[in-house]
């Protein structure tokens, strides 16, 4: 099985360890991982800002690099959601469709494609709060949504984390309320964005976790920024790091 790994731009620059964890984890699971070296970004930042035309060249570049893969894996629900569901800046065609149809968030790939049952190398003896991004929950349906009160409960990232030895997962109120990142929103509407982040941290900290874990590093980048400003002790990890065997 050959996989094209996408390392989102913000992970590339700010959180390379997350990219490394995703790569190593896939390799541990016996996947042959290709990292197309000329990759940049999926185009979401421009498209989300309404500037679809400005994202066109970036999306075309992405398609050029990734359309040859049977599986395209991104350790980010937000980027996956964009490539799967909102990839319309580049002209339509079989290559664009190929990319949109074969892209997976890392969690989906582990949970639905590889159907991983255990991560024997993993151990994380800490109290952890799991934050699922809106893209992951409402865009990719990686977990049941709180608004859909009749839907059966499921939570793929949580199901995987539960396989990590020693982990203690804690609940918190308004668990799938947006954290306030929202891409460019975090800058254009910074006051509301930060307030949402502070509130999210406040709700999570009622359960006093040591770590906040997510499959979306962009939410965590924002929450970490809020947490550091507030002087909170809580630490942040991408889910790939835990599944790959980080102990702290």
């Amino acid at each position: 099985m050959r996989v094209g790994l996408v390392v989102p731009c913000y992970i590339d620059v700010f959180y390379p360890e997350v990219g490394i964890a995703a790569l190593e984890l896939l390799e541990r699971l016996g996947v042959e991982v290709d990292y197309p070296f000329d990759q940049t970004c999926c185009g979401q930042p421009m498209a989300n800002s309404g500037c679809e035309a400005d994202s066109r060249a970036t999306e075309e570049h992405f398609i050029g690099l990734f359309s040859r893969f049977e599986y395209i894996v991104i350790p980010s629900g937000s980027c996956t959601h964009h490539v799967r569901n909102k990839f319309i800046a580049a002209p339509p065609g079989p290559e664009r469709d190929q990319v949109s149809k074969h892209v997976y968030d890392l969690i989906e790939f582990l949970h639905d494609v590889l159907k991983v049952n255990e991560f024997p190398w993993s151990e994380f003896p800490h109290k952890v709060a799991l934050h699922n991004s809106c893209s992951a929950v409402r865009g990719l349906h990686m977990a049941s949504m709180s608004e859909r009160v009749h839907d059966p409960y499921f939570n793929k990232p949580k199901a995987l984390l539960e396989k990590v030895k020693g982990i203690e997962l804690v609940d918190f109120p308004r668990h799938d309320e947006c954290c306030g990142f929202g891409g460019t929103f975090s800058a254009t509407e910074e006051a509301v964005s930060a307030r949402m982040g502070y509130d999210k941290l406040g709700f999570i900290q009622r359960s006093q976790p040591e770590y906040i874990v997510s499959s979306d590093m962009s939410c965590l980048m924002h929450l970490q920024g809020c947490g550091r400003r507030l002087g909170t002790e809580v630490k942040f990890r991408h889910i790939a790091q835990l599944l790959n065997g980080d102990h702290a």
Binding site: Y10, F14, L23, F37, P45, S186, A187, R228
Partner: peptide, 29 residues
Amino acid sequence: FAIYNDFNAWGKHRETPLPAGQTFHEWYK
């Protein structure tokens, strides 16, 4: 660049993320 907008706005109520010593790309290379 990463936030794609006014840098100062991000930092008004939040700490900005610190770039790592080495990008993933450089590590991979």
